[in-house]
Design a protein around this nucleic acid. Structure first.
Ligand code: FES
Ligand code: FES
Lengths: 150, 150
DNA sequence: TTAACTGATACTAAATTAGTATCAGAACAA
DNA sequence: TTGTTCTGATACTAATTTAGTATCAGTTAA
């Protein structure tokens, strides 16, 4: 059961990469090379991030993309919702077509509690937090993530 | 972002239905009609539940399936793991091929914490608990789930 | 005026999920 | 002992989602 798909995965990676170089724009090409993300795929992901105001862009030569806001203001939850929709355990546990009485369904209660928890947790994790963690690890010399070794 | 697929959904429904009539066997056909689950699909789901010792079966005329253990001993988590594998947020956030240094990866830490939480929660929800909830609601006359009304 | 970019969108391929079909064999009952 | 009702096993198809590619128009800077 995989929770994050490639869109979200790549988007988070791209956002971190952009957040690591504050102020500077990067082209999609550079990001693609940097992070090993298929170029055309990344392009579409970035365009979606732009539409959702997480990223700003500048067209033309010397253009590129940059974070639209403070890394601490970008939650992983936001990214998930853009590419995968709201976290929901099941559209409706016992019926394809949503029930009219959803609020009364006890089965749903359990499930919605879990949904809420997951959403809360993903709200706490921001790009800023991830970057801080990454930097801390880099400084203390501990190994980091897959791109850097092996 | 849908977390539970049809296999899990139908399996839970079937397990609840079986748990509601303790002792008695039901044929896959009856279950299928009862719950509105496609017959052949349900057959395969039941066979999987049987292989995993959540359900027992008896062949031949008058045969059928029944819960193999106490409903309280069947966790929704077990069902999820049978049909969707272990809950994991991402195989590995930053690399397709699992990194050798996963234990040191700070990004992974956040994610594994959330995974753990979800698994814990789905461990707490058992078929017995769901049945108890259902019965309580039936008694108090409150509306229940989608099969019973519009 | 050309090279380096993004915007928009159509398209294809791969993987997963959902659902169907078939045949063999067990148990029961007449 | 034969027909009927059931499960076991497994192959198959269809639908949907996810992943990835391609193309063309327009913008900007040198
Ligand atoms: S089954 Fe639809 S709301 Fe509970
Ligand atoms: S990216 Fe692979 S373990 Fe962190």
């Amino acid at each position: 059961m995989k929770v994050l798909n490639k869109h979200t995965d790549y988007a988070v990676r791209a956002l971190i990469a952009l957040g690591m170089k504050p102020g500077s724009r990067m082209s999609a090409k550079a990001l693609s090379d940097d992070q090993g993300i298929p170029y055309q795929f990344l392009r579409r992901i970035l365009q979606e991030l732009i539409r959702n105001d997480l990223v700003t862009s500048k067209e033309g030569a010397g253009g590129g993309v940059a974070l639209a806001k403070d890394p601490d203001g970008i939650r992983v939850r936001d990214v998930i919702e853009i590419f995968q929709g709201r976290v929901q355990v099941s559209e409706c546990m016992f019926r394809k077509q949503l029930c009219s009485n959803r609020t009364n369904c006890v089965l749903r209660h359990e499930i919605m509690r879990i949904e809420q928890m997951v959403n809360d947790e993903f709200s706490k994790v921001t790009i800023g937090k991830l970057i801080a963690d990454l930097k801390r690890v880099e400084e203390t010399g501990r190994v980091l993530h897959g791109e850097n070794n092996q």
